[in-house]
């Protein structure tokens, strides 16, 4: 199960890289990208857990969870961007 280990481990590292980036960078865009990298790391781990070897049917339940998660992540990002734009506008008007 090297593939599972490799991609699961990559997911873990992605999560932590995202966390680092989220804490270090100030601009909203960078924070959102960092959050999405963190989320992507979680998805990676879930999909690696669902993987059961080549030619074997993977577990569909984590797949469905991740699919749902991606759609929610995109909705949340869209909302965060509008909140950010609104905030910038308020600040500009002082």
């Amino acid at each position: 199960m090297t593939a599972q280990f490799l991609y699961g481990g990559a997911g873990l590292i992605l999560f932590v890289l995202g966390l680092w980036s989220f804490l270090v960078h100030a601009p909203l865009l960078r924070k959102l990208i960092a959050l999405n990298i963190m989320g992507g790391g979680v998805f990676h781990v879930l999909i690696a857990v669902a993987y059961r070897g080549d030619g074997v049917t993977p577990d569909p339940v984590p797949h469905a969870l991740v699919l749902t998660g991606i759609v929610v992540a995109v909705s949340a990002t869209a909302l965060a961007l509008v909140l950010g734009a609104r905030l910038q506008d308020e600040q500009r008007q002082g």
Binding site: A3, Q4, Y7, L29, L32, I33, N36, G40, F43, I47, A48, A50, Y51, D54, T57, P58, H63, V66, L67, I70, V71, A73, V74, T77, A78, L81, G84, A85
Partner: peptide
């Protein structure tokens, strides 16, 4: 994710996580 046999999720990620999210962030 295609490599890990999750075609459904990979399609979603390519269309949503890559494409539409990229457009959202770029316009922002």
């Amino acid at each position: 994710w295609v490599r890990l046999g999750s075609m459904d999720v990979a399609l979603t990620e390519a269309a949503l996580g890559g494409g539409l999210m990229g457009l959202l962030l770029l316009t922002a």
